[in-house]
Design a protein around this nucleic acid. Sequence first.
DNA 1: CTGAAAGCGCTTACAG
DNA 2: CTGAAAGCGCTTACAG
Lengths: 329, 329
Amino acid sequence: MIGHGVTARIQDVAAQAGVSTATVSRVLSGVDNVSEALTERVWKAVTDLDYRPNRVARRLRRPGREMWALIVPDVENRFFTSVARGVEEVANEYDITVFIGNTDYDPDRLKRYLSTALAEQVAGIILAPSSPTDDVSDVLASQIPIVTVDQTLTSRSLTTVMTDHYEGGRMAGQHLRDRGYERIGVIAGPQHSPEWNTRLEGLQSSISPESIVATERGDNRVGGGGTAMGRLLDTHPDLEAVFVTNNLMTIGALREIDLRALRVPEDVYVVGYDLNSQEWTRAVPVSTVNQDPRRIGEVAARTLIDSGGLPQERHTILLEPHLEESIAL
Amino acid sequence: MIGHGVTARIQDVAAQAGVSTATVSRVLSGVDNVSEALTERVWKAVTDLDYRPNRVARRLRRPGREMWALIVPDVENRFFTSVARGVEEVANEYDITVFIGNTDYDPDRLKRYLSTALAEQVAGIILAPSSPTDDVSDVLASQIPIVTVDQTLTSRSLTTVMTDHYEGGRMAGQHLRDRGYERIGVIAGPQHSPEWNTRLEGLQSSISPESIVATERGDNRVGGGGTAMGRLLDTHPDLEAVFVTNNLMTIGALREIDLRALRVPEDVYVVGYDLNSQEWTRAVPVSTVNQDPRRIGEVAARTLIDSGGLPQERHTILLEPHLEESIAL
DNA sequence: CTGAAAGCGCTTACAG
DNA sequence: CTGAAAGCGCTTACAG
């Protein structure tokens, strides 16, 4: 039985092994050379006492390691949970704990979570911004490495891991052109966000301008997609196809189409974004430009590892999207 | 400009305010009385220096506060992310950081995350078990409060927050009986898990035994639900209705029904579990027994708060499910 | 290769 | 009410 009856401390291990705490620490960290005999005794004591180093104490002494903050606007959105999954995979490899903050697209909550991240002395921050104007000045001042995911920040020079949305838009446009659609509506994200505009530019690069009969803006949520789709159908009853730049809005759009008793793809052909057919209750023949959010998380995490704890200069890593045609069961 | 050019420490604040670090600490924690004059000077210094207490140092000195671990089997499952959302809401109120571990239904990963939780000196653990046989003995030994969510553990006496699944099953049965169905199939979770059996018992309490023509077991994933539905349709072509005890399996079942060109509800009436119509691309007239996962998370978190840092005796908190009839757009 | 000791940034008895 | 000091559990120069 150990000291407080709770957990063994490094002292207990040292005593049991008949060495100093420094030696125990060295054996465990594996960085300095320790004689074979002592190493063995230390490991035996560690095992016997079921010793687990206190990560809090370790982090205090040696800050900026073993913990990351992942901050996302909506934990309930599968895109972000998949990013989290990817981040976690890498974090696990390096024995890093990751805490997740959910901002709910609220700047105050972002501020709080960034502050918490600093107060927790994290080794790095992975931020999925709510908007390109998110304020990260405190983080920059603190010198903690930060990687942005899914979106760049306009005012700051940060490393970003994201999908090549221009290419995504281009793919969607080419697909629609190949299928011969000439009256296309677009449902895009908020105007102020350059990412959505990038998707639009990609779209415009592959179809003629007059094919795009209208562009509606939504809030990237299901409701916003439905409302936008409604406006599109109201103002352009002769619409042939629609391109929606976000997963939840695509779902909203599909529901609105269904509500009006229109059929996909006969009445309106839909190209969505990030649709995961795994989650559908019924086949809907809709094409989709898909990102690989897990991979985004992984790459962001590895970027943090590679940064070696130092802030990086700006660097955008673009991952390729994939077009999935007419997903059906 | 502060010491290391990074962040102000409590020393810097004390110096600036002309008081001891003890006084700063007292003002910030608000527990001891400090004279108005000093309090004012301290707050001014805190503001001027933009001081944020180092949570790592605080936790080392005063363990068992301000951090929780939330461990779930699948972060990509919306049920668990909603639980996370609920937990986070409460954690935020109390300025608690919560780190999330994703076990992927793997006992080794559970072991690792529990170990990390201990090493991080968390104030509490919220565990959504992968199976009722999950091993939490290390946690119990450590005296850290743990609350289980969604499932009880067979071998341990822990506080659990979960939906009243007996009632959920009963509601489903009553609904099916009210609609006059007499040839009902069931797709339940793994046999070894008592929770799935509870749902079955609830079902059995409200319909006659001979109404249940077959019970298949699935793995709580989309694929398992589809396979089980396939077996049901193969062995009982005259099936009228099916009750599925989990969200992903319900989706799998619906897809399988669609695959076979059968219609819901004309050919097979479906009562699912935890279906979120918000996520659907098209209306499917399916009824569903729904839990309130956010609330489960909230209640679990409040239980942790109320435990005052002490392990509780066993205590099961049952939340009511809700039947949503024939969800459609 | 090994140990004694300082120190990471806080909090909290202990005096006064 | 306030401060000097000890100590939380580690890691890491510094000596030897």
